[in-house]
Amino acid sequence: MKIAIASGKGGTGKTFVSVNLFLTLRNMGLEAALIDCDAEAPNAMAFLPARLASETEIFEYRPVIDTEKCVFCGKCAEWCEYNAIICISPAKYIRMDESLCHGCAACNTACKYGAISDSQIVSGKKSVFEFDNDRCLAEGRTEIGIKSPVRVIKAITDNPFEKEYDYTILDSPPGTACPFMETVSKADLVLLVTEPTPFGLSDLKKAVNVLEMTGKPFGVIINRAGLGNHDVYDFLKEKDISLWGEIPFEREIAELCSEGKSIKDELPDIKRKFTELALKLEDYGNSRN
């Protein structure tokens, strides 16, 4: 089962929940893996004793225009959704803007004159890490200057491990745009992490809206519970969205996170919250089979 830990808003605690849920599942003796899909700013490994095991480059398509063969018909420019190719027929002018290209290769299909040939650039890296003598951690990292991390997310979520895991946690990128969609599309269940503040609610609504359109099963985890107001709870009730767990707003948690540490035995109450969440996931997984 793949579980995406996502949120509309940044900084709600996706990585905090992902890492601690992963550790809890492992401590329970379950086969669990974690993929950091926030390919623009991956940092889940900073919270774990992870040792780099392998690193692979991820490539992305780029067209090369042969101006000798080009008849300046403008078909490729017309097909390009991102306006990366500008063709001005009367002036016999054509230009490809590398920074606007998403690497979809539609231009290549559009060209009937063989004027577009293929090339590739490195758009990111796919890394696998070892934890507890098991290569069960992975991360995608987009190269600087690459327009969209989607290609890297696609590559990293396409089974980066040597074996199958019962639980694979996908630590998702923030927001509700393409990187979010690419990640949640790979998940069997999405858990949205939010905080009970007006900002948390506003962005949660966006994420809920998008997920409702996809028909994906999803639930909510409220982080920093006790902060803000009751509006998030009212919203969940009104929409009949299941609340998977609540993590209280506590100084000790923030201190541990700021030191790059995970929740350990010193916070038994919080540890129990994660155990409850893991058990709920186990139940959910079993009920699906």
Binding site: N83, I86, I88
Partner: peptide, 16 residues
Amino acid sequence: DATDGAGPAAVGQLAA
């Protein structure tokens, strides 16, 4: 209303 690259596309339209 282009997704991306509205400026270059507008130049393309005007230049043509």
